[in-house]
């Protein structure tokens, strides 16, 4: 549905996007993940025909966005980073105007406006001026605008930015509901968003694609070992030595210690489950096994690993999320509770 091949975009001497290629299949939700300034917005602007590419081919629903811009644009709904609304118009006026310029037939405009405002839950403010609406409503009006002509492709640039947790959940649900009928590309720098809404992820950093695939796939591919967390009551030094001797274990590191309890992080060969052997070893030595669990590499770790150069492999492997990511975790947890 969307084919991007060798897209490069320069602003004068600055290279914003460099040789980016990816594809979005019909009906799927593709996540565009990257830190701020990675080139997400530029890529989306090129796909929507707002900016011409410096190099590369972009086809949307079979139409080249450079050669047949009108045909391509007819099939794209686009929500830029800040919703492109006119504050002095009412929601109805605005949606009717967008419907007209997107080429909706005159007789269908009323029903399309109605449908889009119902889908995005803005019917209760339909007659209010957009300038007087809250950020959340304005964002949803922006989304309604993108849906108004029932496009095959939806390009959403940070659709949940600036929303409160409840609105974030609602927007994500809305987006998931759109999959199937529409091909959705959404960009975000918020990680939980990707695992919650997207079937496939393209990770972009400094204008280059650094990875793409399903979220699970990425986790699997990038993690070179299995990690187990084990909490034991017993003499730490001896325990550590014993754990080391279990077959397949490559590394043991104490993570936490309280009283006589110690939590160790154990790394084992890829594809080998060492939990049963670890448990047996502990019990045979008559120590108390308090907790045992596997710890996968989270999307955060992958993201950091892929997009950060100065973070050493080691600290990524050790599951030490930065303060920023902890904040994001907390945010995600909050939104989960609603």
């Amino acid at each position: 549905m969307i084919e991007v091949a060798g897209l490069t975009k320069r602003y004068g001497p600055t290279l914003a996007v460099s040789d980016v290629s990816f594809e979005a299949r019909k009906g799927e939700v593709l996540g565009f993940l990257g830190p701020n300034g990675a080139g997400k917005t530029t890529t989306m602007r090129v796909i929507t025909g707002y900016l011409p590419p410096s190099e590369g081919k972009i086809r949307v629903a079979g139409y080249d966005v450079v050669d047949e811009p009108l045909e391509a644009k007819r099939r794209i709904g686009y929500l830029p980073e800040s919703p492109p609304v006119y504050p002095d118009m009412t929601v109805i006026e605005y949606l009717a105007f967008v419907a007209r310029i997107k080429g909706v037939a005159r007789k269908d405009i009323k029903t399309r406006v109605q449908e889009a405002s119902e889908k995005c839950a803005v019917t209760d403010v339909a007659r209010r001026q957009i300038g007087k609406l809250s950020k959340g409503y304005r964002q949803r009006v922006g989304l309604a605008q993108a849906l108004i002509h029932n496009p095959e492709v939806l390009i959403l640039d940070e659709p949940t930015a600036g929303l409160d947790p409840k609105q974030i959940i609602e927007t994500r649900e809305l987006i998931r509901g759109l999959a199937g009928q529409h091909t959705v590309v959404l960009s975000t720098h918020i990680l939980p968003e990707v695992s919650k809404t997207c079937e496939r992820v393209v990770v972009i950093s400094q204008g280059k694609i650094v990875a793409q695939g399903a979220p699970d796939e990425l986790t699997h591919r990038l993690q070179g070992f299995e990690t187990v967390l084990i909490t034991i009551e017993g003499p730490a030094a001896e325990v550590m030595e014993k754990l080391h001797r279990v077959g397949g274990v490559q590394m043991v590191e104490p993570r936490d210690a309280a009283d006589s309890r110690t939590t160790f992080e154990v790394q084992a060969e890829k594809g080998r489950d060492v939990r049963a052997e670890l448990a047996r070893a502990v019990v045979e030595s008559r120590w108390n096994l308090l907790e045992l669990k596997t710890s996968g590499m989270s999307l955060e770790d992958i993201f950091l690993k892929l997009t950060t150069k100065d973070v050493s492999e080691d600290s990524v492997a050790r599951n030490q999320p930065s303060a920023l990511l902890e904040g994001l975790h907390a945010e995600a947890d909050r939104s989960e509770q609603h």
Partner: peptide, 14 residues
Amino acid sequence: RSGTIELLLTSPLT
């Protein structure tokens, strides 16, 4: 200023 230029330029209008 308001970014609505992006709406106009990405619509099927010349």
